[in-house]
């Protein structure tokens, strides 16, 4: 297997204006690489949702992206409060966002469901008080 191309992004906590920078940067790079438009959109949407989650819920975190010829893996790691009930958090429309966050137009409860919907692989591990680790992958097409 060929060596992956690796990109690392740090997402600051509670900075909504910065959220979206990682997905925008990755999208522009993958466009140069000629990634097919549909996969590109799926990557951009799922990573953006992930970035927002890191900013809103986790007090920031780290994104590691590994690009292979046939897939793009995205790892989102934080040391935030963690998620007690993952199946509940994965329910469309459920949101753990505060009223303050909702007043900004976020917190519609579509974050995690969208991340799962737009990716080919999705795995979430979380421990309350320790943090959340998400692994996503989107397969690339010709």
């Amino acid at each position: 297997m060929m060596d992956a191309i690796k990109f690392v992004y740090t997402v600051p906590g509670d900075d909504f204006s910065a959220a979206g920078q990682a997905s925008a940067d990755l999208k522009s790079k993958l466009k140069t690489m000629g990634v097919d438009p549909k996969s590109l959109r799926n990557i951009a949407i799922s990573l953006y949702e992930g970035e927002i989650n890191l900013a809103i819920h986790a007090g920031g975190g780290q994104i590691t992206v590994l690009v292979y010829p046939d897939k793009v893996q995205m790892f989102l790691d934080d040391e935030g409060p963690g998620i007690a009930d993952i199946p509940l958090a994965m329910t469309e429309g459920y949101s753990g966002a505060s009223d303050a966050v909702r007043s900004l137009g976020f917190g519609a409860g579509m974050g995690l469901p969208n991340m799962k919907k737009y990716t080919d692989e999705f795995d979430i591990q979380s421990t309350v008080g320790q943090g959340t680790h998400i692994k996503m992958a989107v397969y690339l097409k010709d």
């Binding site: 060929m2 191309i5 790079k29 466009k31 140069t32 690489m33 010829p69 010709d142």
Partner: peptide, 23 residues
């Protein structure tokens, strides 16, 4: 019609290799 003037050329593997060299 979309004209991909900014994309690297070649098949998926070639584009990946070229992009890898770019980085």
């Amino acid at each position: 019609e979309y004209s991909p003037v900014f994309e690297l050329q070649g098949d998926r593997i070639q584009r990946f290799m070229a992009y890898s060299r770019l980085e």
